[in-house]
Nucleic acid binder design. Structure first.
Lengths: 139, 139
DNA sequence: TATTGTTATACTCTATAACTATA
DNA sequence: TATAGTTATAGAGTATAACAATA
């Protein structure tokens, strides 16, 4: 079976990301976390007091879609929201959230090492810079 | 704002794929095609007479999810299904489908060149092999 | 006037289970 | 017994429009 799609870097990018996210999701599942939730918790820990809107901009998630995501984390007792002014809310991890994130971080580290190890050594140093150019590059 | 996520290749992979697929979808939209539909048409052209199940395996799309996808293409008059035996169906592009795919291929080529051009030259030759290792590599 | 949080809604892709008919 | 096509359904992520309240 001929597969002309395999010649396209863009197709390889999509298939690789899809395969890796499936694997990552499976590894997070035992913790009861999705990867979008996990990335939000990582950013909240690194930026305590940040707001939903700021978080959405960093994660490229629409403001509207942050609402159910943060609701789930709050309902699970992993984050708390404190009013800053009458409009914004300050986000922070609860003690339970800190514990859960610590567990998630070991999953992340193991996963990231596993991912990199799949890449042949001669290409390894080039992967991240190449990917960064795709999503961070001038525009 | 601290962004620890930016240190992870896996995160860069997801963001890069997401950004590129958004761009690719936008370029295909004027043709009335989604990228999943477009990739199916590419494979049908390269493997005339193939079946929905074979296609699904190549594209890593569940058999069940191929049904509405192929229905849309058939309704749009871009593909046709011919019974092989009492069970399988042979897929092929209609003349209109061939025309549409030719248009899509120019979009694909322009897009793929644009994508690669975003990657700094020294990393460029390494991107595809690295990505291939991630989704095609031993397992 | 711009921003925050929110609701409602819809679309794309993906995943699973189950059924019928056929190989 | 395994496979092809199909239906139904659900989940995850994403997108837009609109609104009230606040900065």
């Amino acid at each position: 079976m001929a597969d002309p799609l395999q010649s396209f870097p863009g197709y390889a990018l999509r298939r690789a990301a899809s395969a890796m996210m499936t694997e990552f999701s499976a590894r997070l599942a035992p913790l009861g976390l999705r990867y979008a939730e996990t990335s939000a918790m990582v950013l909240i820990e690194a930026n305590p007091g940040t707001t939903a809107s700021q978080l959405g901009r960093m994660l490229d998630i629409q403001r509207a879609n942050m609402v159910p995501l943060l609701n789930r984390l709050e309902t699970a007792g992993l984050i708390s929201r404190q009013p800053i002014d009458g409009k914004s809310h300050s986000l922070s991890l609860t003690p339970a959230g800190q514990v859960r994130l610590a567990e998630a971080k070991t999953v992340i580290d193991t996963f990231e090492h596993w991912l990199i190890a799949r890449v042949p050594e001669e290409h390894r140093p080039h992967l991240k810079p190449a990917l960064d150019a795709l999503w961070l590059g001038e525009g």
